Lab assay of single mutants.
Amino acid sequence: KVTYHVPNEEFARKLYKKAVDANLNVEIRVENGQFIIHIE
């Protein structure tokens, strides 16, 4: 399980798409202006 803290929405979207394309379980949320992405 990996967690990324991404300040940039564009990068967060790319990361999310890559994980989904790889059939990984992804959860994304915004906290204090940062995008928190959990990948399992």
Rank of each mutant, 00 (worst) to 15 (best):
K1L: 09
K1G: 14
K1S: 12
V2K: 12
V2D: 08
V2A: 05
V2R: 11
T3A: 06
T3N: 06
T3G: 04
T3C: 15
Y4C: 15
Y4P: 05
Y4M: 09
Y4N: 06
Y4F: 11
Y4H: 10
H5I: 15
H5D: 04
V6M: 06
V6W: 08
V6A: 10
P7L: 14
N8Y: 10
N8E: 07
N8V: 06
E9N: 03
E9A: 05
E9T: 02
E9S: 03
E9I: 12
E10S: 06
E10W: 06
E10Y: 05
E10D: 11
E10H: 05
E10L: 04
E10K: 03
E10M: 03
F11R: 07
F11N: 05
F11Y: 12
F11S: 10
A12N: 04
A12M: 10
A12H: 03
A12C: 15
A12Y: 06
A12W: 13
R13Q: 07
R13G: 03
R13D: 08
R13P: 02
R13E: 10
K14N: 08
L15K: 03
L15A: 03
L15E: 03
L15Q: 02
L15T: 02
Y16R: 04
Y16V: 10
Y16K: 05
Y16N: 02
K17N: 09
K17S: 04
K18P: 02
K18F: 13
K18N: 10
A19S: 02
A19E: 03
A19C: 14
A19V: 06
A19G: 03
V20E: 03
D21G: 06
D21K: 09
D21N: 06
A22D: 05
A22M: 12
A22L: 13
A22Q: 07
A22Y: 11
A22F: 14
N23V: 15
N23G: 15
L24V: 03
L24Y: 07
L24S: 01
L24P: 00
L24A: 02
N25H: 14
N25Y: 12
N25L: 11
N25S: 12
V26N: 00
V26F: 06
E27P: 00
E27Y: 09
I28A: 01
I28S: 00
I28P: 00
I28L: 11
R29G: 02
R29I: 13
R29T: 10
R29V: 10
V30D: 02
V30E: 11
V30N: 04
V30Y: 14
V30F: 14
V30K: 07
V30Q: 07
E31A: 08
E31W: 07
E31L: 09
E31G: 04
N32F: 11
G33M: 03
G33W: 14
G33H: 03
Q34Y: 13
Q34K: 08
Q34T: 10
Q34F: 13
Q34V: 15
Q34H: 11
F35S: 01
F35V: 09
I36R: 02
I37G: 00
I37D: 00
I37P: 00
H38E: 15
H38C: 12
H38V: 15
H38K: 10
H38F: 13
H38G: 03
H38I: 15
H38R: 12
I39P: 00
I39D: 00
I39S: 01
I39Q: 01
I39Y: 02
I39T: 01
I39K: 00
E40I: 13
